[in-house]
Computed example of a mutant assay.
Amino acid sequence: MIPRDIASYLKNLSFKYPVVTMTGPRQSGKTTLVRHLFDDKPYVNMEHIETRQYAQSDPIGFLNRYSDGAVIDEIQRAPDLLSYIQVIVDEQQKNGMFILTGSSQFKLMVNLSQSLAGRSALLCLLPFSIHELQARYSELDYVDYIYRGFYPRIYDHDLTPTTALSDYFETYVERDIRQLSRIQNLMLFQKFVRLCAGRIGQLLNTANLSNDIGVSHTTIREWISLLQTSYILFLLEPYHGNIRKRLVKSPKLYFYDVGFASFLLGIENRSQIETHPLRGNLFENLALMEVLKYRYNRGLKHNLSFYRDSNGNEIDIFFSIAQHLLPIEVKSGETITNSFFNNFKNVSKVISKFPYGKALIYGGDRYDVQNNTQILNIHHIHPYLSGIEKQ
């Protein structure tokens, strides 16, 4: 088992809260992790039909079987249990009783806020990070990661990414989508997901998607929300600071797993990535998710945005540290040129102070400073941010 960075934070929170809830995409490793860390607790899977029916028909009788708590997997499949769990933890006043997992972000969050507000710590486990993989897979470069993605099964069972991600897509559409929505035309929805991959790293334009698919703007917004809820799409919101510039209001579209985006683009081997017109966008997605995983794996909420004004000046990632911003540019090229620093110069005319410096993530191997900017590659992201936050 590849150690997960979030493990120590999960274990620590179980000593401080009666309930700890871990969300994240299907097959991100939630079940493996919680069963490993809490192997002394009984395990219950709400995907099991008979178990779920028992929990739904007789929630008190069901929970009486677990008077000392349990690990309950896919809790969103039996959301009414949360109210009964609230009663138990309020009565017993013991920490670490229940460890819950769920794969439906919105549905689970709504039920948690209604039933377990203040009683449950909430964590998010995404698929592997580069930081978690590099000790065992030091030979992999960024092209490998873009092709493979980060779902644990691909690494644990040495699966061919194209086959594994195709199965994942079919399972996701056939099971999760049918549970979460009443989409009538699944083939049209599949086409929509693939079109989203073609817009990776770009501003979300629902009107454009609506025209290309032939459905209403409302439907597109519903589908976008559905993909966010099930941890497929990640929307990076624009920075809205108190500055005298007209800033864009639309978010940028990314995928939680860059390998899944590559599959949707029809990429079947790593050599196709090297010449692909969206290589830069895929690399940007890779870097953004590594920054996001750095936050989530430390039990923190994401603090990311991007900057773009009406003149086209842009910073790929703003990493917030208290009231300050760390601007991060992402370039897939392996040769650093002066043009890589242009956006830093432009944004510095609007925001004059960056006390934590600036960072450039690129496709090469350097780790040094140029033009008052820290140069790093994808393998340096975790230690670099850790050092920045300790300043």
Rank of each mutant, 00 (worst) to 15 (best):
I99M: 07
E139Y: 14
S166H: 09
V193T: 12
A117T: 09
Y66F: 15
L253D: 06
L203S: 12
P18G: 00
E170L: 14
L286N: 03
R175D: 02
Q370R: 15
R26D: 11
Y254P: 09
Y151W: 13
L133W: 07
S332Y: 13
G96M: 05
N342A: 15
M109P: 00
E389A: 00
E132N: 03
I328M: 11
D212T: 11
F306R: 06
L108K: 02
S120D: 04
P251V: 11
D156K: 06
S262L: 05
D68V: 00
F306P: 01
N64G: 00
L304P: 09
P25K: 08
V369W: 10
F150C: 01
Y168I: 00
Y54S: 11
H379Q: 08
K252M: 12
K345N: 15
L226F: 13
Y66H: 09
P355Y: 14
S348V: 03
N111F: 03
L13M: 10
R52C: 12
D40I: 04
G61Y: 07
V71K: 05
L81I: 09
Y254L: 08
V291A: 04
I6D: 10
G149P: 06
Y294D: 09
S310G: 11
D368S: 15
L247K: 04
R244N: 15
I85R: 04
N377R: 03
N372F: 12
V89E: 06
P152M: 04
F255R: 05
L140R: 04
I315K: 14
P251A: 09
S120H: 01
K94Y: 05
D365E: 13
S332P: 01
K41T: 06
I328P: 08
L282Q: 03
T21E: 03
I273P: 01
N12K: 14
V44T: 08
I232R: 06
I273K: 10
D39Y: 15
S348R: 12
S120A: 15
Y384T: 02
K345I: 14
T21W: 07
A197P: 11
Y84I: 00
Q114S: 10
Y155A: 00
G241C: 12
T171Y: 01
N95V: 12
V347H: 09
H380T: 01
G364Y: 07
W223C: 11
K94T: 00
F62C: 03
I88F: 08
I75N: 02
G201V: 10
K390W: 03
K331Y: 08
I243G: 00
Y151E: 05
R52H: 13
F234G: 02
C196H: 11
I154E: 01
N343L: 10
Q92S: 04
S386A: 10
L304C: 11
N281D: 15
V19F: 06
H48W: 12
L112D: 07
V44N: 12
V143Y: 14
F106T: 14
Y155L: 06
G312M: 10
L233P: 04
Q228W: 05
L300F: 14
Q391W: 11
S181L: 08
Y9A: 05
Y147K: 02
G357F: 14
R199L: 14
I351Q: 08
T218K: 12
